[in-house]
Computed example of a mutant assay.
Amino acid sequence: MNNKYILDSILNSYDTHGVINRFDRYHFPTKHSIEHVLHLLKEMLFPGFFGSYELDNNKLEDITKKRLDLLEVHLTTEIGKTLMWKNHVGKVESQISLIQKEANSITLSFLESFPVLRLTLKSDAQAVFEGDPAAKSINEVILSYPGFEAIMVYRIAHYFYLKDIPLIPRQMSELVHSSTGIDIHPGATIGEQFCIDHGTGIVIGETAVIGNDVKLYQGVTLGAFSVDKNAASSKRHPTIEDGVTIYARSTILGGNTVIGKNSIVGGNVWLTESLPPNTKIYVSADFKASFKQSTKK
Rank of each mutant, 00 (worst) to 15 (best):
N58G: 08
G131V: 04
V19Y: 15
Q293F: 01
D132A: 09
P166H: 13
L38H: 07
T16W: 04
T16M: 05
V92A: 15
N3Y: 15
S290Q: 14
G267K: 03
H198V: 06
N57I: 05
T82I: 03
L108Y: 05
I264F: 06
D56P: 09
A231T: 08
D164G: 12
V283M: 13
N268E: 15
D56H: 13
S94W: 07
A157L: 02
L143Q: 12
H39A: 05
L167Y: 02
N57Y: 13
I138W: 02
F148R: 06
K163L: 10
V19I: 15
I142T: 07
L108S: 07
A188C: 11
L98C: 10
S94E: 13
L55H: 04
H27R: 13
T76N: 09
N139H: 10
S144Y: 07
I246Y: 07
L41F: 04
L98T: 07
H17N: 12
I165N: 00
I246M: 13
N12W: 07
L68D: 08
A150K: 04
W85A: 12
I246N: 05
I202Y: 03
E72N: 12
L38G: 00
N104G: 06
E174N: 09
F114A: 09
S105A: 08
S97D: 15
N139I: 11
G51M: 06
R236L: 14
T107F: 00
I240V: 11
F49D: 08
D56M: 05
L222C: 13
I79N: 01
V128C: 01
Y247Q: 04
A103N: 03
A127N: 01
